[in-house]
Design a protein around this nucleic acid. Sequence first.
RNA 1: UACCCCGUAGUGUAAUGGUAACACCUGGGUUUUUGGUACCCAUAUUCUAGGUUCAAAUCCUAGCGGGGUAGCCA
Length: 580
Amino acid sequence: MNQNQHSNSNDNDPSDEPTAASLNFIEQIVAGDNESGKHEGRVHTRFPPEPNGYLHIGHAKSICLNFGIATANGGKTNLRFDDTNPAKEETEYVDSIMEDVRWLGFQWDNVYFASDYFQQLYDFAEQLIKSGHAYVCSLDAEKTRSYRGGWNEAGKDSPYRSRDPEENLDLFRRMKAGEFTEGEHTLRAKIDMASPNMNMRDPTIYRIRKIKHHRTGSDWCIYPMYDYAHGISDSIERITHSICTLEFEHHRPLYNWFLETLDIFPSRQIEFARLNITHTMMSKRKLLELVQDNQVSGWDDPRMPTICGLRRRGYTPESIRNFCTRIGVTKQNSRHDMAWLEDALRADLNKRANRRAGVLRPLKVVIENYPEDQVEQLDAINNPEDESAGKRKVPFGRELYIERTDFMEDPPKKFFRLGPGREVRLRYGYFITCTDVIKNDAGEVVELRCSYDPETLGGQAPDGRRVRGTIHWVAAATAITAEVRLYDHLFQTTDPFEASPATDTLAEASYLNNLNENSLEVLTNCKLEPSLKDAAVGELYQFERLGYFCVDNKDSSPGNLVFNRSVTLRDTWAKMQRKK
RNA sequence: UACCCCGUAGUGUAAUGGUAACACCUGGGUUUUUGGUACCCAUAUUCUAGGUUCAAAUCCUAGCGGGGUAGCCA
């Protein structure tokens, strides 16, 4: 970064003026509206989750978009729970959603529920009936479907379409009073059964549901449908820009129809492409299936793309927000590489996380020429990217653990680590040379005998000799034993729904066959440096040369530390191995 | 089959009639007491074909390709 400030004096450029970030298409619409004075420059968005599941990274994109646009324009954002279907919605989800939005770093200006508007929505419905724009239909669900027609076939008018307003009003009031059974009647908008847009073929706007609602209890037995409730809720809140995903595109004419017919505040719906990421999926319904099938330990399993899963995995709000701004907003269906998300985390943590030593798969090393009882406290830098993080002391002794993968009995040419007769540097310690390899009866390497060069403390040899490799280590006497959980992609295929011909009969079932069986590896005998003893939930560390790790927020306790690997470091050595 | 939306390096985005840019991935290199970080280099007939224009990724037409839609779900 300094290089820019010291840009050459012969450079004619007066400055490295940062060019204004280009606006995405929604920001352009908002900017245009501000310019034309459409809502006197007012910008008001909303984030409208249905409380029927946990938020995931796809919602994070929407949250960042909605809150981001409001903030950038001095506007406001409401959190609104779209709770019009009592069969699916629960308070548990309401709480988790609020927690996740806050955790991501956003504060809503108002929190509302669509159920707050049930009375008003009902009143508007009576108004539509009176003006002849809605009628009570007594077709059952199956008949309704067949009357709707198909893509090549216009729908037929319901025989109840011509009921007069008085009869409709009476019937509707009796629906509300609970005089009918579920499915006996519905209220439908009277639009156009021949419309090429199915949503305009007299959509249902109220149905009878004799189910307790998580907020209104049994006050109501008729509930409004999404299309009806959503736009009107936007309008009631005077939302200027109602941002939603692409699958609602064909609903926009209906959205507008309600607002125009009722002649209420003209919120505008704008659609963008939902987020997809490789090796995972965003379907709330299928995520719920994974939870119910015990394919994962819960909504907050660190392999899940849920906000709570990512949080438990060690993702920071900053990294997620950063990811969301980097992926952009368009109307193109796309799938982002998981590497982007991981990269966003690494970029954040590289600057903030303190370094520590941890050995995942320990191999004992005895330094034969090191005094039996001697213990030295060596200086280690906490974070080379942040001098203010300071230093710490790390104990060194005659017996150490090193990473099993840092030793090879018969190393290939490019292997810079330990091998028989080879010399490496112990990070912040001495050069050691492997003098002997001890094996068990099965022929497995169980211990290494080494010698050290006392002149090389601090990692430099006075005679100027160099070593290619530097490895991490933990002194055996003072090591903490901990559990470490390693995670990999939940799905082995980039697209979880990709058919896997070997196992699939039904394409629909394929995503279970694409689960990565090795997505979780639990290591129970990891050796960590003693300074990690008091590591607290929420703390993130880089275990040098391995990756970023956080204390698990559920299963870890002071005496029994459990760490999750949030993301590995980039590993060019592993990459070379993989190519072979 | 009808309607709607979308086609720019491998991936994802930018350029809004005027030199196709950035990030990630991948490959190569420099630096390095983390095989990390940082830095440098490499990769495009802008889906195709016509048209408008001095000039088209951008505007028009057609084709092709991808996605979405027929809940009393959201």
